[in-house]
Design a binder for these strands. Structure first.
Lengths: 135, 135
DNA sequence: ACAATTAACTTGCATAATGCAAGTAATTTT
DNA sequence: AAAATTACTTGCATTATGCAAGTTAATTGT
């Protein structure tokens, strides 16, 4: 029933984001330009429809994501990262650096290129994506 | 059956660490000076014994943690972060910064102080803990 | 205008992950 | 030698996730 297990910042972040899907939705919003339910659904990891609906609701309830009805198509909802969601970018970049270093045989070439850019200029990459995603 | 859902670095890291407990064990090893099963068990989040045994095995199998029998007490096993585990420190620091900023009413005072230090000198904090934990 | 399609879900049920309480086995301490 | 410690395992309950099908409202195609 309680949302948080403790007052530890790491445990608390995990209570909000520590499942197999939430950060992938954040990734899709951050780096893949995805905005809608059906776009998230089409990601290669193949999230199920009920879990996606549940996670979008959870992320919105907890202020990491916001949604608004599409202006030109009333049945579409566009999701965006809030400031709280955008502030997960540094964390995502660190994950990419870690996976690039420790799972090199496994990850995609494209990801390695991204990791290289991050290692060369983390602040620059961060600024670029923040600008991209703001507004 | 498959370990990884995709070749995405974020999805892959989540496949290894994306549960409610693994990163807390890493935290205990990194910042709390904990080394043994019963010390992890005593953490305030109250992990169950079977889950703890399972996660320690998983983290060791996947090279993030190593264990060795205690020299002076044969029934004790001391766990340590490997290089792969140590390289999660930057990620942990980013999580702390995020929680400090976005869950301020929830996290402990002590964590806020730690977050402040990280914000003032991230590289320094990182270097300090790496030195602390190496060897 | 009407039928087909799209978009965003919900529902019901199966499987897998987690949680809880108790038990075990090998030391180590008293 | 008995009691306590340490690191687990086992069995079962609960919760989370996964899968397939169905629903509702809006939109597009003819």
């Amino acid at each position: 029933m309680q949302k948080f297990r403790s007052t530890c910042p790491i445990a608390s972040a995990l209570d909000l984001l520590g499942d197999k899907w939430s950060l992938l939705i954040i990734r899709d919003l951050a780096f893949m330009g995805k905005r809608t339910y059906s776009e998230f659904l089409a990601s290669e990891e193949k999230i199920s429809t009920n879990i996606l609906a549940d996670r979008l609701g959870w992320l919105e309830e907890n202020g990491m994501v916001s949604s608004q009805q599409d202006a030109s198509n009333k049945k579409k909802y566009n999701y965006h990262l809030t400031e709280k969601g955008l502030d997960l970018l540094p964390l995502l970049l660190e994950i990419i650096i870690w996976s690039d270093k420790h799972l090199p045989e496994h990850i995609a070439e494209q990801a390695k290129f991204f990791a290289l850019q991050i290692k060369e200029d983390k602040a620059g990459v961060l600024a670029y994506w923040r600008a991209q995603l703001s507004q």
